[in-house]
Design a binder for these strands. Sequence first.
DNA 1: CGATTGCTTGAGGGCTTTCAAGACGTGTGG
DNA 2: CCACACGTCTTGAAAGCCCTCAAGCAATCG
Lengths: 241, 241
Amino acid sequence: MATKGPLISIGPSVRALDPWLPGNPARGKPYQLLSDEERAHLATIASVVRFKKGEVIYSIGAPAKTLFNIISGVVKIYFATAEGQESIVAFLSAEDMLGLATEGKYTNSARALTPVTAYALPTMTLRNKMLKNAFIEYSIIAKLCQDLRVAQRHAFLLVKKHALTKLTMFLQMQEHVQATEEHPEIYLPMDRSDIADYVGLSLGAVSRGFGRLAARGVIQLRDRHHVKITDRKEFEKLAAE
Amino acid sequence: MATKGPLISIGPSVRALDPWLPGNPARGKPYQLLSDEERAHLATIASVVRFKKGEVIYSIGAPAKTLFNIISGVVKIYFATAEGQESIVAFLSAEDMLGLATEGKYTNSARALTPVTAYALPTMTLRNKMLKNAFIEYSIIAKLCQDLRVAQRHAFLLVKKHALTKLTMFLQMQEHVQATEEHPEIYLPMDRSDIADYVGLSLGAVSRGFGRLAARGVIQLRDRHHVKITDRKEFEKLAAE
DNA sequence: CGATTGCTTGAGGGCTTTCAAGACGTGTGG
DNA sequence: CCACACGTCTTGAAAGCCCTCAAGCAATCG
């Protein structure tokens, strides 16, 4: 975070892989698609907003006046059914965009899981900018392709039948997004209930699942939010079902 | 299909809802985002290709030299695990785009479920065109937002626990995409096995599920590929879980 | 018209879900 | 700083649903 501070302060950040260009500067890792000038340009129409832990950022159906670009913190995107059940679509963090809309209305809801700082971009201003600046658009296309792949992987996870497979795949995804390797511990900002809603299990099954993984020596739980993988071989095997 | 023929012959088609513009010419239905000139322009770099029923259109990991835009027919997009299990990501038909890639490699596989006709657009040419033409890009952004919403709805379906809920939601989605109302029958081009792979059930559970729905009088099966909803109330209730 | 593929239906087993009670942790107020 | 109270998590037992395996049946294709 601290190392990214100065970079992010330039303006909104869109980090992704180019859908079509083979090979890239960062050897397989998402990289910044916007130039410093473009980011500074976007910064002129953006404002910085903050949300407290647990605060609702926007609700499904509300007028989508704003597109958000996360600077720091973690956000969950979710659907809420009338019966109070909620299905979590994604967990987003720094450099992700949120505020997916259709015809000017948000198509899902968002809530801060930790204190969140973000750029708020007025959609209509942004839309006008985009229609004149192909580079900004291209970066958004790349990001959307990325989001689509993540969503497909999520669906792939949800199809799995065994709780341990779902959980290990979930941990894989979290580990992957926290690209800070050399840091052998995975941080889980969300609570058990959120994990359950994301992987499609009951709260109890998630709890039992972590317990079984720990008992087998596959993972180690420092506390409820910090996991370390202690048997990589078995871990990968479970994730591959 | 026949009615769309002449329109489509103009060139590639991108039909979607504008993410941010509230209200639209077609009152809530996806509409053509490209002008006739832009479509004709894209047609100059596109070629028309055909695939037989069951034919593989592209495979995961292969160089993504082509982006496809379906003219007619139905395609399934899927992941295949090493163990032969496959998870279906989406069913696509006329006016949809396929060929999602990352760094020049396809990130999933595609197969024709029916005979398919499509425009083939060379990705590198298209990429260059896009970086110069913001309107083409904007239409692709709108389409990607649409795809993302569909993917999220798919995930929402996959979380459901009961077979009947999954099946009725699936039928709802099919009914919705075949916007040809006044036509009280839903056409299912895919086989039971594909449905199973899409909704995350076993083949047997899908078969039993359709059987139970028919027995309850909720649906009526003319044959394996044609369903009619006979009890809308109960149908909606099941879909809402 | 025959053969292959896809679909239906059956029975048993396993895993997760539910429902519920108790342990843990955290945050607040005294 | 401690104690309490609330929310979160863990753990337990019974029940339900779907999965697996398998055999018989329909439908499609050559």
